[in-house]
Write a protein that binds this DNA or RNA. Structure first.
Lengths: 136, 136
DNA sequence: TATTGTTATACTCTATAACTATA
DNA sequence: TATAGTTATAGAGTATAACAATA
């Protein structure tokens, strides 16, 4: 017997597109491409070893993030230096300015997302976010 | 003060990719491309007037679905005939065979999705689906 | 020989613009 | 003139394969 619910993907897909459309102008206003923002989000205090690992972490592919890292480094938002112990690998870290930009952008984005989440009751909202984290 | 939650998009995005990867082999096994499946899902008993409307409904663009409709029609899964009252527009309807294929595919997909949803308690699962529908 | 990062290339997906046929 | 559908083309995004440096 079919459960007769909408497909999960049929809901997640459009929701994702909505969020993307919501973020696009905010990202542009902050001078960040989507993947650049994803990179900044995944660079925290501790440096990330290997660009490969970073690419995996954000669901991209290693060849794709190179241009993005070039740009971010050129703008002083991240630092990319060779690992002294293995000069093949690059240690990636976010700079103070990068962190500032990332946080400002995130604040704006989450504010926009909150407008959407306001359709939910506070409990629903809490539950939804918890479950999402559980699924991802 | 920042809420310090992960961005909604940062969770929906990867979840969407996961679902896509989950569906890909199932869709292929049933001989359906992703957008073709989306079309079949949105065609129910009542015919859809204008391809434009259908494209909007699935978040695609009118030029994109034409090839897909051609293919589906050639395979007898949908019917596309001119509206007698305005011969510019096409009336789109799903055939019995199309419905059969769509339902079989959906059953398989939802079964796969259920494996993922099994990480949740029954109540969480219920709430999650309800909230998702509310947001989309 | 294997691995990290890089570059160049090919491929897919999507959007834009121009065309037709109807109205 | 405006609209539905179509086609052709260009552009963006992504993946594949080959390369250099290091281990």
């Amino acid at each position: 017997m079919t459960s007769r619910r909408p497909d999960l993907a049929a809901m997640i897909g459009p929701l994702g597109r909505t969020l993307l459309a919501l973020e696009a102008p905010i990202l542009e206003a902050h001078g960040l491409a989507m993947w650049a923002y994803a990179v900044l989000l995944n660079l925290d205090s501790e440096p990330v070893r290997t660009q490969n690992a970073l690419a995996d972490a954000i669901g991209a592919d290693k060849t794709r993030i190179i241009r993005i890292l070039d740009d971010l480094a050129a703008r002083g938002l991240i630092e990319r230096r060779p690992d002294p112990t293995d000069r093949r690998v690059r240690l990636l870290s976010i700079t103070a300015e990068g962190r500032r930009l990332r946080d400002a952008t995130q604040t704006a984005i989450q504010a926009a997302e909150n407008d959407l989440l306001d359709r939910l009751t506070p409990t629903e909202r809490e539950t939804f976010l918890t479950i999402l984290q559980k699924l991802v």
